[in-house]
Computed example of a mutant assay.
Amino acid sequence: MTGVVGSGVVGSGVPARSGDRITEVAGITVGHAGRLDDHVVVGTLTEPGSGWATGTTVVSVPDGATTAVDVRGGGPGTRETDLLDASNTVRGAHAIVLTGGSAYGLAAADGVMGALEKQGRGLFMDLLGHTVPIVPAAVVYDLPVGGWENRPDATFGADAYAAAAADFTIGTVGAGTGARAGALKGGVGTASVTLDDGPARGLTVGAVVVANPVGAVIDPATGLPWGVEDLAHFGLSTPDPAEIEAYAALNAKGTVLNTTIGVVATDAALPVASLKRLAMAGHDGLGRAIRPAHSPMDGDTLFAVATGATPADPDAAVPMPPGMDPDAPVVAALCEQSAIVVQRAVVSAVLAATGVADVPAYRDVVPSAVGG
């Protein structure tokens, strides 16, 4: 679901495909709020941009879930990430904010905190019912797309939280409204998988990602997303050679300030230390889908959530030697899928995105690949 903030029009999104979205993990919901003006100007180092093209995406987390985070970028903009360290006291968040606006956009989390407080959700601090909601956040740098002063605030966060649902849209929406992916338009993407064999049989892993990398997401030699072998899964076809040449000729993004952020979720029951492994493995998916990723100027950050709603199948258990974690095979299987769904989420973001101002979408440059 998507909310509109201010007088702009809502971003251009497409429905996330049922069966292939983070909300296949029961209890996880996603909402967007954003503003995209009709006439947006992209700024440069010497010329200001104008208009609105930014937004916020909120992932609502069920009570009792555990939460972890792994920050790989050298220039992160984050909130409450230290709180999620396994050595600290708090075990889980109540919502996670992914937002545009660079560090200014962290203000969106205030709106989510206020909405959660009104619902009585959060850590209970006294017998009077006072709570402190835990709302970690991460940002992407989208300030040059539109006016520098136009960035998300608490209203964006509150509206995105209110819009959170199992059915949501992807593409140029929410925190992906002003996102760019190399020379192309970035956006919000999602993916999921339910394992049908192995030690994690019956468990689900999903991801939602805001793709805003300076690195390329498309192989200039093939005109297709990096690492995609199953074209049918994404509805892709082999591109026309002339379109591949047109993509290769595009200018670079023009900035080294960038970031890809997201959330990986599973219905497994995992402690924070094991859950962090899913966030770490999710970064492998970024490395597969984006070249380069994790630069010194990136803020690449992935959160991980474990709802604990689905117990592991005891018949799929793998015996472990004494002194070793009996759940390690389950965690390893989930980590493998974490990398896969993050990669697929990045690809879905780029395929679903629509162009903004002079930032073209993949479907504009290589239409033959997407049936255009």
Rank of each mutant, 00 (worst) to 15 (best):
W226R: 10
P199W: 00
V214T: 14
A200D: 07
P241R: 14
V209S: 09
G206T: 04
G223W: 04
G206N: 03
D196W: 04
P239H: 14
V210F: 11
D197M: 02
G206K: 02
P213Q: 09
E229P: 06
N212Y: 09
A242H: 14
N212R: 03
T222P: 09
D219W: 03
A211D: 02
G198Y: 05
G235K: 00
L231K: 10
A207T: 01
D196S: 10
E229R: 14
L203N: 06
L203M: 09
G206Y: 01
G202E: 05
E243F: 10
V217N: 04
L224T: 02
H233C: 09
A200C: 09
V210L: 06
A207Q: 04
G198P: 08
P225T: 06
V208L: 11
G223R: 05
E243C: 08
G198E: 01
V210H: 07
V208M: 03
W226L: 10
V228N: 05
N212G: 08
A232Q: 14
S237C: 02
D240P: 11
G206S: 00
L231A: 12
V214F: 12
A211Y: 03
A211L: 08
V217A: 06
V210S: 11
P225A: 12
V210C: 06
S237A: 15
V217C: 10
F234C: 01
G227E: 07
T238W: 08
F234P: 00
L224S: 09
G202N: 08
L231R: 14
V217W: 01
G227Q: 02
